[in-house]
Nucleic acid binder design. Structure first.
Length: 564
RNA sequence: GUCACAGUAGCUCAGCUGGAUAGAGCAACGGUCUUCUAAACCGUGGGUCGUGGGUUCGAACCCCACCUGUGACACCA
């Protein structure tokens, strides 16, 4: 970073009067390949100002520059290319990492402010699908990333534990269900009821009326309805918690939709009092024409509340309770409009903190190009995917490393890691088609590839019989093969910031892949464990790579076993 | 129809604020384990960056139009 400043300062002494430092800063770029240097300055703008050929300008600048701080500076075409002093740079970066360890890349832009994160939020009595995995792992990674830059995350699992689907479930249970089946395999059994309900309701629409009636009973506190609801909820939550444990993810709150039942009337009253409600087609709405949005439906024509009514209550509750500096919602892209409406209504209500609500959308997971649908029974169960992945990992371990201790645990870390990493490595806005083979792949740009890279580094450190390299020892490294690694290591703090600014875990995942690739290349070309002047510096490099890879994986919520 | 997101190699995708020959992985073919774990590394082939205009010294990236896909669009969440 201060390396870049040095480039800027050096250039500005020569370009004084033509370009100021800010202009120069904006023009500095990083060449695609390191044989073109580490920083480059294009001269096209100057060519325009000076009415001169850019190539000529580039070589003029090189002639006039003070080149002492750099390994070399040369003109290539229209560019001035700067090559950093490798030995100084390596000593700086490695010393910083070895000193700071896990804290390398930490920042304090958050200043300890609370950030609520609405994430995961599966529906009770429905299986945990790949779709919920996205919200869960993206939300978790964002929580880790914002923690690293100084915020305090509050992870909230906004369970779908209320609504007419419970009426459907109760009707189905009373008609076709029995207690023993539910106890044996709660979610799958409840799912069967749910699917059957929809199938039968197609030919027998009165079932829907019955379901509505039972949901009304639940709302009115009917004993039997409440009993069933509580039972379904408890059984489902038990299963969800098992899955979260497998994923290594926990929550600060499980306050679901039912939690806000008694908090909606206040919202409706406030909207009324502020004259924001109007009658339309029998329903109570908030007109959002001036936001160029569809109206927000607050009350149905029968007086019942709706999705947005509850989310308004939720947002207000979270603000009053947690005094957040940001409130994040990690919810699929198909709900984008809803969150725009939510913010619009809140700002009409005069809640200036509405601007702190940040919707973090992500693309759908489809199967054979179609949306996954619980109703139609076409879903991919996360649990099955995790099991398949773990099984496959164990098979690999048995082939490659049969005498590894704690094989099962490592297989689990690798299998689950593959699934999580697969979900996080692409831009979160992209949707993707579910393909089991793709998800549980262990070669190429995958989680296990990164894990394996760290295992290699760990293995070297074990063989060298050192735990930590002294940060104060000689860390100058001149090996050209190590250069790409050193630059990447130096980029890590900026990478973390970018992931934070964009709420984009894939930035970290891609970084981990790049660093792994660079290290594996180095590993194939240079031997670390040979006794010469730079051995200590090489070990420092290896330890630094391992520190940063482990940190990046931890941000993503992926485990980093020491052996595999 | 309106709005949103997307369209880059056979497939899955990178490409940071516009810049130097558009990059990876998978798949295909070929090479590398007596030497730090081959879940790796190296090489070969493979591209009208959806289409057409425009802005710019320079566009995969910015602007406009169009085409295609997906999703949302009033009493589900």
């Amino acid at each position: 970073m201060d390396q870049k400043q040095q480039v800027i300062d050096t250039l500005s002494t020569v370009l004084d009067g033509e370009l100021n430092k800010d202009e120069i800063t904006n023009m500095i770029e990083i060449p695609k390949t390191s044989d073109l240097g580490d920083y480059a300055f294009p001269t096209f703008m100057l060519a325009k100002l000076r009415h001169q050929a850019p190539q000529q300008i580039a070589s003029d600048i090189v002639d006039k520059l003070d080149k002492r701080a750099f390994e070399k500076v040369q003109a290539t075409g229209a560019y001035v290319n700067f090559f950093l002093n490798k030995t100084n740079y390596s000593a700086n970066v490695l010393q910083t990492i070895l000193t700071q360890q896990d804290h390398y890349g930490d920042a304090n832009v958050g200043k300890g402010g609370n950030v609520t994160i609405d994430m995961s939020s599966p529906n009770i009595a429905k299986p945990f699908s790949m779709g919920h995995l996205r919200s869960t792992v993206i939300g978790n990674a964002i929580a880790n990333i914002i923690t690293k830059v100084g915020y305090h995350p509050i992870k909230i699992n906004h369970l779908g534990d209320w609504g007419t689907q419970f009426g459907k479930l109760m009707v189905a249970y009373m008609k076709w269900g029995n207690e023993a089946d539910v106890k044996k395999d709660p979610i799958n059994t409840l799912l069967k009821y749910y699917v059957r309900f929809h199938k039968e309701a197609e030919t027998n629409p009165e079932l829907n009326d019955e379901a509505r009636l039972w949901f009304k009973k639940l709302e009115d506190g009917d004993e039997k309805a409440t009993y069933l609801w509580t039972w379904f909820r408890d059984e489902s939550l038990k299963e969800f918690k098992r899955i979260y444990e497998e994923l290594g993810i926990d929550f600060d709150h499980y306050t679901g939709e039912s939690f806000y039942n008694d908090k909606m009337q206040a919202v409706v009253d406030e909207l009324k009092q502020k004259h924001l409600l109007e009658k339309s087609r029998g329903a109570e709405i908030v007109n959002l024409d001036k936001f160029n949005l569809n109206p927000a439906l607050i009350l149905k024509s029968d007086g019942a509340t709706l999705y947005i009514t509850r989310d308004l209550a939720t947002a207000i509750y979270r603000h009053d309770t947690f005094h957040f500096v940001k409130s994040l919602y990690v919810v699929g892209l198909e709900q984008q409009e809803h969150f725009k409406q939510l913010k619009a209504v809140l700002s009409l209500m005069g809640d200036e903190w509405a601007k702190d609500i940040q919707y973090i959308g992500f693309g759908l997971i489809t199967q054979n190009g179609k949306k996954l649908s619980t109703r139609k029974g076409n879903i991919v169960l996360l649990e099955n995917v995790l099991q398949d992945a773990t099984k496959l990992a164990l098979k690999q371990i048995n082939e490659k490393h049969p005498d590894l201790p704690n094989k099962e645990e490592v297989a689990h870390d690798v299998g689950v890691g593959a699934v999580i990493f697969h979900d996080l490595k692409n831009n979160r806005l992209d949707s993707f088609d579910f393909n089991l083979e793709e998800v549980v792949r262990f070669e190429g740009e995958t989680g296990p590839y990164v894990q394996y890279t760290n295992v290699r580094a760990q293995s070297i450190l074990r063989k060298a019989n050192v735990k930590h390299i002294d940060p104060q020892s000689a860390l100058q490294l001149s090996d050209a093969n190590a250069w790409d690694i050193l630059k990447l290591l130096g980029d890590y703090p900026a990478t973390v910031m970018r992931a934070n600014n964009d709420y984009e875990p894939s930035v970290i995942a891609k970084y981990a892949l790049h660093l792994s690739k660079a290290f594996n290349k180095y590993y194939a070309n240079s031997k670390v464990l040979v006794d010469d002047d730079e051995k200590n510096a090489r070990l420092a490099l290896v330890e630094s790579v391992s520190i940063v890879l482990q940190n990046a994986l931890a941000l993503l919520g992926v485990k980093a076993p020491a052996e595999m």
